[in-house]
Amino acid sequence: MDRDRYVPFTTVFNFRDLGGYPAADGRRVRTGVLYRSDGLHRLVEADLGRFAALDVRRVVDLRRADEVANYGRIPESPGLDYHNVCLQTLAWTAAEVAPGELAGYLAQRYAEIADEAVGGAMARVLRLIAEDTAGGTVFHCMAGKDRTGVVAAVVLSLLGVDDDTIAGDYAASRFSEQRYLAWRASVAPDSPRYLPSSGDPAPAETMLTFLAGLRSRYGSIAGYVDAAGFGPADRELLRARLLAPN
């Protein structure tokens, strides 16, 4: 994982560019077009200039309605197109899972997220990402690892990025998770844990297992998004938007 993908902010810890990865037909994912992130509701005023300099015009917030109500959303600004698409209706926690069991536990939860999103949420998110709009797009949840990781894996796979690279991109969240948890403990020391207190919070094995499971249940990643209502013509738009020419 190239640490240069990270865009540093004061209280947003997992904002990074999905561009640059090798993809299908010898092409690469475009840089400066699609970003993944943790909770953008935490952007402080001192960081708004840096965010604006990225020319991100569309925000896709994957959180539940109660999370948006409780924590707020990214600050409004002229020209910013905001969409809230709930990708997971039921909250869960991995706090009581033993570190050695975390990869399997997370892969199961991600499978549940993906299967639930077949009902319409995944297709809506992918269309928002694929649409040829001015400026870049960022999608995010709370930690930028779980729901965001599911969407990132599906998008990168549709672009022809290999599984090991996708798993590496997912595993890079371990760096931001450590920073986020340290910050969270400093500002809210009594807040409940949602991950085991030790071990790797984003094992690459999780993503490899998740992708294998999608293919087992739907035949392929394309088969999965077909079931979700994101068909071949949609996928061509996604590739046109996100793949750099040879």
Rank of each mutant, 00 (worst) to 15 (best):
M1Q: 12
D2V: 03
R3E: 12
Y6T: 07
P8W: 11
F15M: 15
D17R: 03
G19D: 08
P22V: 10
D25S: 15
R28T: 14
T31H: 07
R36A: 12
S37Q: 14
G39R: 10
L40P: 08
L40G: 08
L48K: 14
G49C: 04
R50Y: 04
L54K: 05
V56P: 01
V59N: 02
V59Q: 05
L62E: 00
R63I: 02
P78V: 12
G79A: 12
Y82F: 13
L87G: 02
Q88D: 10
Q88V: 07
T89D: 09
A91V: 13
T93W: 08
A94W: 11
A95L: 14
E96H: 14
V97R: 11
A98C: 10
P99E: 12
L102K: 09
A103M: 03
Y105W: 15
E112H: 06
G120T: 03
A123N: 01
R127K: 04
L128F: 06
D132Q: 10
A134N: 05
G135N: 01
G135Y: 03
F139C: 08
H140P: 11
A143N: 09
R147C: 00
G149H: 07
G149R: 08
G149C: 09
L156Y: 09
V161R: 05
D164K: 12
A172R: 15
A182T: 14
R184I: 10
S186I: 09
S191Y: 10
S191R: 15
L195V: 15
P201Q: 09
A204N: 05
E205K: 12
T209Q: 15
L211D: 01
L214G: 06
R215L: 07
Y218A: 00
Y218M: 01
S220D: 10
I221F: 02
A222K: 11
A227N: 03
A228C: 00
G231H: 06
A233Q: 11
R235N: 00
R235F: 06
E236R: 13
L238T: 00
L238W: 02
R241H: 05
